[in-house]
Nucleic acid binder design. Structure first.
Lengths: 145, 145
DNA sequence: TTTCTTGCAAAAAATTTGCAATTAA
DNA sequence: TTAATTGCAAATTTTTTGCAAGAAA
């Protein structure tokens, strides 16, 4: 659980306390290979026999987001979904069927972003990129049906 | 308003009817240079003296999304935001302060996506990329303050 | 006509807030 | 000790649904 420790100190560096509930959220997110909704996180924390409430989960997700530790999106579904921001700069390849997430280490965007920023007069601070498609498992299953 | 017509026929091709309310939503989205929430769309449609209700806006956004005409995201804010899917394959550069959106025509990702897909055993059907930063106006204003 | 769509009111779901009690630093 | 955090209950906000009336093909 080295990763959770790193995140903890990042939080504490911002003057926030590390509580059982917070650690549990980070651990749940860290153990998940796909983005989770607030409610899913709440249930997973409970499964680990940690006390918490949905309210607390919401409040903490908000803080974690503001602190830049997690990502928030609602692209392919109705509810907001949260995910740890990986320490490496990397991107995701996401299966539209099973929502499996594969990390991609390469990033072809850094130089591209620089060029575009200069041309448009922007100071570019971040970017976001995801690839979507179907993983081999889901494709095979689809063929059999 | 050629763009709206194109979108209309795409909808009708799927067996849906073209109503005043639907056209108004498409026009509002088409005229906007940034993603809008359901409520903003509702208010803008009303400003155009078209009858509608929030319910109708929600129902139509859902259909438009399912039909692949619009995008939905909740990345930098709390509410879901909607935007027309541009007919050209292009990406956005978004100012984190004023939310201005600049279209970028180039896309360095097609060949990248293909390579990664083959390596990971995915059939990649779409991708998503956005650049975020601060536009020159916002930067200058920030300096003056 | 026939089927899809609208708008209202009401319901359900998601998210936030007030406040007293608890806990980490 | 003290400032941040929790959990409950209640409030708010966002989104969805049932149903009768209205509009498009």
């Amino acid at each position: 659980m080295d990763r959770v420790k790193k995140l903890s100190s990042k939080l504490q560096a911002q003057g926030q306390k590390m509580t059982k509930q917070r650690r549990a959220i980070l651990e749940v997110l860290s153990a998940s290979d796909k983005p989770l909704t607030a409610e899913e996180i709440f249930l997973l924390v409970r499964e680990r026999k940690e006390n918490t409430s949905l309210t607390t989960v919401y409040r903490n997700l908000k803080k974690l987001f503001a602190a830049g530790l997690i990502t928030r999106e609602g692209f392919h579904d109705d509810k907001a979904q949260f995910q740890l921001l990986s320490d490496c700069h990397c991107h995701n390849l996401i299966c539209l069927n099973c929502r499996k997430v594969v990390k991609i280490d390469e990033c072809p965007l850094s130089s591209f972003a620089k060029t575009v920023g200069e041309r448009e007069g922007f100071t570019i601070t971040e970017h976001r990129m995801e690839l979507y498609g179907y993983c081999s498992d889901c494709l095979q299953r689809a063929k059999k049906e």
